[in-house]
Design a protein around this nucleic acid. Structure first.
Length: 882
RNA sequence: GCCCGCGUGGUGGAAUGGUAGACACAGGAGACUUAAAAUCUCCAGACCGGACGGUCGUGCGAGUUCGAGUCUCGCCGCGGGCACCA
């Protein structure tokens, strides 16, 4: 065999790893453990390049840790519940279960050839009854500890499909499938009490030093801590039972600028009025229309209704404010009521202008004046302003100071108290869907909501369901919901809602530590393996998934399913970028974009040196290379009309509709898995997007072939050894060991790969002897092994390595060999490089100075004068200041 | 609006305050070959120059420093997150 043939060697070494069972994880107290996890995939159909990049990165980390003596846990599973399975069933018949498990089989079969160091014995899918049964057990434990509860909540309701929709499924206020106008409806739903943990989840972010700062900031903003004042306005002649209205504000310093009081249409007072007054009822119905999406809210016009009620200002008895119901006030933030200060708030200003309410300023710029009738004056809180109606404190002070003073004053006078609030709301988990984990409770006429008994778990999804009618198949199943009440035994009805699929992914990392345990976790295993030492996934999960998981780890710890130190489940997080690919685009007569597959076009280099392309079908038949040459020539001569050209848009996200998807299986059969792995790591830093290019993939493959050839030919050329060449190669090898090790440890994969390229180049030119080269090539293969495990294994065996390279100890750089005996120092004159000298490493400062000054270039620059100053940084640089 | 991040050749990108452009892609020249493929060698930031060499150069403008892609301040541009949140 004289050619690198990945298909052969990859299958061979995968079989060898399997036979040796080296990726099966078991507790071993003699070794430090290392748990590396990539976010598990949703089984959508086929794997894509993004998966390849994600799992390759995890694999590099895992393989490096194995080689450095760690006991590694590297599992894989499937985030398998969710709507696409039901949509597929509705669109083309079939069953969500079959669709899901078929996809899993396909994707697993696509992943195995990648040669990942995964312990497949721990694989599970979240739709396995064994998994969701344990999730139901967790739910029951949470219920017992008060971590989950039921309440009424406003949801997006599709009246045609008769289902709750997620915000993402409401488009232009209409259901995405039915096209029906979405209603805001109040339903009784289950909620996790995540908001109770808001402060803790926020504070603990500080300890997550190995998380990207960006993710921590995003979570911080999401949790949204604010400090403000809560107090009440007393209501004049209010309806029975209502004598005051509680409000919350973060700007109590503007209290004397209040010109109206606004309440949410869902505020209890509004609801009470609604029952008695037709005009109020009509307004509230109008105000509630439209979805709960951002988009719907954005577009919604500000609507207000003057109730005729009035409240008294707590600091000014003569001041009475009208009470309005306004559609922009949210019931679930603060108290559902605000006081409006049009002079210092954009929304309140809009509202005041529309309804002719007074605009009263409480502060002005320090110097000058701001006409608040035209626009609100909203300086940063840190800016000092001149208070025209100060509630407390000095006339001139910053907003922040005034706010603190106002809170203090109100607390002293018993008007209200300072409170800390969070934007984070409780997590609603009920979904009126079939393909999810059934919520294990029973509704009994006599006993109410009763938890299912743990011995009756799992509450299994029925298989005999149909998707030919709108609504939740569980709800209309003839028999499934019927069951005895777990408490009194009377005939009762199961909850037909299922859990949000984010629940499934909130604890799978813990389940991997003991996937077959008869309880959600096995504490001995969890105690050994947790936490995840390195978690890797996309930035798109920066908020929800990672926040929910942090909450779940805390809740599980409270229920005794995780050790206390695992409340932060992910010690280190890495968010990798996407794999992008260029798009070939033309436009149709109407100017709409039309996309083309790569095989439909010919690329060439245009007269401007930029990449151009043209449609093959317009060119007649011919060899691609010749076509490209002809096109380039024609373009150069200006013979190509613009409309013959295709727009080449680089770096677009891969998607079927844009026709720019590259299927990993195609690449693997063409070049092998090692090439795909090497390429996705080589071209960009891992946290950034990487552009897939055919030429880049070819280059990667070419390089791997070169390394393989280097290995197979080592020793076949005539012996040319010189001690100098051997020594030089050895030093270069140790520098490579050092740099590659550091790169691999710090997610500097692209830099590590660049170093490996450089070392390969050195090796090819080296005059070192056979023995030295042999060792260098074997080390090269070993250093490459986390990225190209099959190729490395083959070379390792070829060059007499002991055992498998996968389990061989990682090479250590000899510090003595990292330092050269001589150094080349650049000589700068006034900070600009002008020359260089090569001197012994140990040469003293004054010696170096003398040598530098003697240099021609320095003498020329000095023109006989003495330098003002000379800076010598040993081993680094010489700077002569003239 | 608020909060982050990023601007380096034709392209992706290297660079603990110390030789900017490593490594790779695309490009050019050449070797081998009947030819092609494959492989190998060399060139390559811009400008001036035959060469030696020189001038400029990390979005723009200032500052700190012997020395700034890197640190500070101010602009400009791009990207991301949050947002009727009181």
């Amino acid at each position: 065999m004289s050619r690198y043939s990945p298909a052969e060697i990859e299958a061979k070494w995968q079989a060898a790893w399997d036979a040796a069972g080296i990726f099966r994880a078991a507790r071993d107290d003699a070794k430090p453990k290392y748990y590396v996890l990539e976010m598990f995939p949703y089984p959508s159909g086929r794997i894509h390049m993004g998966h390849v990049r994600n799992y390759t990165m995890g694999d590099v980390v895992a393989r490096h840790r194995i080689a450095t003596g760690h006991n590694v846990l590297h599992p894989m599973g499937w985030d398998a519940f969710g709507m696409p399975a039901e949509n597929a069933a509705m669109a083309s018949g079939g069953h969500p279960k079959d669709w899901t498990y078929d996809n899993i089989a396909t994707m697993r079969a696509q992943m195995k050839p990648l040669g990942l160091s995964i312990d497949w014995s721990r694989e599970f899918a979240t739709c396995d009854p064994e998994y969701y049964g344990q999730q139901q057990a967790l739910f029951l434990d949470f219920l017992e500890k008060g971590l989950v509860y039921r309440k009424n909540a406003v949801v997006n309701w599709d009246p045609v499909d008769m289902t709750v929709l997620a915000n993402e499924q409401v488009i232009d206020g209409k259901g995405w499938r039915s096209g029906a106008e979405v209603e805001r409806r109040e339903l009784t739903q289950w909620f996790f009490r995540i908001s109770d943990f808001a402060g803790e989840l926020l504070d603990a972010l500080d300890g997550l030093d190995n998380w990207p700062a960006k993710v921590r900031t995003m979570q911080e903003n999401w949790i949204g801590k604010s400090r403000g004042l809560q107090f009440a306005f007393s209501l004049i002649d209010g309806p029975e039972g209502y004598d005051r209205i509680e409000v919350y504000t973060t700007r109590p310093d503007t209290m004397l600028g209040a010109s109206f009081l606004g309440i949410s249409p869902d505020h209890p007072l509004a609801k009470s009025l609604e029952r008695e007054r037709a005009d109020v009822a009509a307004f509230c119905a109008e105000a509630r229309r439209g979805g709960t999406t951002e988009e719907a809210i954005e577009k919604a016009e500000k609507l207000g209704f003057d109730t005729g009620l009035r409240v008294r200002h707590p600091f000014d008895n003569t001041c009475e404010l009208p009470v309005w119901i306004a559609n922009f006030i949210l019931m679930d933030y603060g108290t559902g009521a605000i006081y409006g200060v049009p002079a210092h708030d954009q929304r309140d200003h809009d509202f005041a202008v529309k309804y002719g309410l007074p605009i009263i300023d409480t502060f002005q710029p320090r110097d000058g004046a701001h006409d608040v009738s035209q626009s609100p004056f909203i300086p940063p809180k840190s800016e000092a302003v001149r208070y025209t109606r100060p509630l407390a404190g000095d006339e001139i002070q910053t907003g922040a100071q005034a706010i603190d003073a106002a809170i203090a004053l109100c607390e002293e006078n018993g008007v209200g108290q300072g409170v800390t609030r969070f934007r984070l709301r409780d997590w609603g988990l009920s979904r009126q869907r079939y393909w999810g984990c059934p919520i294990p409770v029973v509704h009994c006429d006599a006993c109410g909501v009763v938890p299912e008994k743990k011995e009756n778990l799992p509450v299994r999804l029925p298989d005999d369901v149909s998707f030919d009618a709108p609504g939740n198949p569980l709800d209309r199943h003839p028999t499934w919901a019927a069951c005895p009440c777990p408490r009194c035994g009377a005939p009762a009805r199961r909850e037909t809602d299922t859990m949000d699929t984010f629940v499934d992914s909130s604890w799978y990392y813990a389940r991997f530590t003991a996937p077959d345990a008869p309880t959600p976790t096995d504490m001995a295993e969890a105690n050994y393996w947790m936490n995840v030492d390195q978690y890797i996934g996309g930035i798109e999960h920066a908020i929800l998934h990672l926040l929910y998981s942090r909450f779940f780890a805390r809740a599980m710890q409270i229920c005794g399913h995780l050790p206390a130190r695992a409340i932060e489940p992910f010690d280190a997080l890495f968010t990798q970028g996407m794999v992008t690919h260029e798009i070939y685009q033309t436009r149709d007569a109407a100017g709409r974009p039309v996309y083309h597959l790569p095989e439909e076009v010919v690329e060439f280099v245009g007269k401007d040196g930029k990449k151009r392309a043209s449609l093959k079908s317009e060119l007649g038949s011919g060899d691609d290379v010749l076509l490209a040459q002809r096109l380039a020539q024609a373009h150069m001569e200006g013979k190509l009309a613009e409309h013959d050209l295709i727009e080449v848009i680089p770096s677009a996200k891969m998607s079927k509709s844009k026709k720019n998807v590259v299927d990993p299986s195609t690449i693997i059969s063409q070049y092998g898995a090692d090439t795909a792995r090497w390429f996705v790591l080589s071209d960009s830093p891992p946290e950034r997007d990487v552009e897939w290019t055919a030429s880049g993939a070819e280059a990667a493959h070419r390089h791997l072939s070169r390394v393989w050839r280097l290995a197979s030919e080592v020793g076949s050329a005539p012996e040319t050894a010189t001690p100098e060449a051997d020594e030089a190669l050895l030093r270069e090898m140790h520098k490579t060991i050092d740099e590659v090790s550091r790169g691999v440890e710090s997610f500097g994969f692209n830099a590590a790969i660049a170093r490996l390229y450089a070392f390969t180049n050195t090796l090819m030119k080296s005059q070192a002897g056979h023995a030295a080269k042999r060792e260098a090539v074997r080390t090269l293969a070993q250093l490459m092994s986390p990225m190209t495990p099959h190729l490395s294994e083959d070379i390792w065996a070829m060059l007499g390595g002991e055992g498998l390279v996968a389990t061989a100890p990682w090479p250590q750089a000899d510090p003595a060999l990292l330092i050269d005996d001589t150094v080349t120092l650049p000589i700068q004159i006034n900070g600009k490089r002008r020359a260089e000298i090569t001197v012994p490493r140990e040469m003293g400062k004054s010696e170096v100075e003398k040598t530098a000054l003697a240099h021609d270039a320095v003498q020329r620059a000095l023109e006989g004068a003495a330098p003002k100053k000379i800076i010598v940084v040993p081993g680094r640089i010489v700077n002569v200041v003239i």
